[in-house]
């Protein structure tokens, strides 16, 4: 999974029906130091996590898992999904980070 920050959201009325009922969030991957280290991507929010702009989240980026997390029980166009809102990341030995 990716550690990412929610940096915005998307409003779309004309969209695939699998996106209905989900928030479309703009995220960017962050490193363990909190710095951005990836391009902007768009994800749906998971059924259980209520992520908002500014939250640090865990994002699953494999299609099958993303559809499962988004409670999409048939093949649908979802390849990213938020599965958790991070409260804290604890890495006691900073030297392990390359």
């Amino acid at each position: 999974m990716l550690i990412a920050k929610v940096v915005g959201n998307v409003v779309s009325t004309q969209k695939h029906e699998d996106y209905r009922g989900h928030k479309l969030l703009i995220i960017r991957q962050v490193g363990t130091d909190g710095e951005f280290c990836g391009p902007e991507m768009i994800t749906v929010d998971g059924a259980d996590s209520d992520a908002g702009v500014g939250d640090i989240v865990l994002v699953i980026q494999e299609g099958g898992g993303a559809r499962h997390a988004a409670r999409c029980d048939h093949p649908g166009p979802i390849d990213l999904c938020v599965i958790a809102v991070v409260d804290m990341i604890n890495i006691p030995h900073q030297e392990f980070i390359q």
């Binding site: 940096v7 998307v10 004309q14 479309l24 703009i26 500014g54 299609g63 093949p75 166009p77």
Partner: peptide
């Protein structure tokens, strides 16, 4: 992207690795 791109198309078996799935009205970022 990837196989999920084809799943949005009328023929999900189409050999397509990118599929347009929504038209954006507006985007807001902090």
């Amino acid at each position: 992207k990837s196989k999920e791109g084809a799943f949005g198309l009328p023929n999900p078996e189409a050999c397509c690795d990118a599929g347009i799935t929504a038209i954006i009205d507006s985007m807001y970022t902090i």
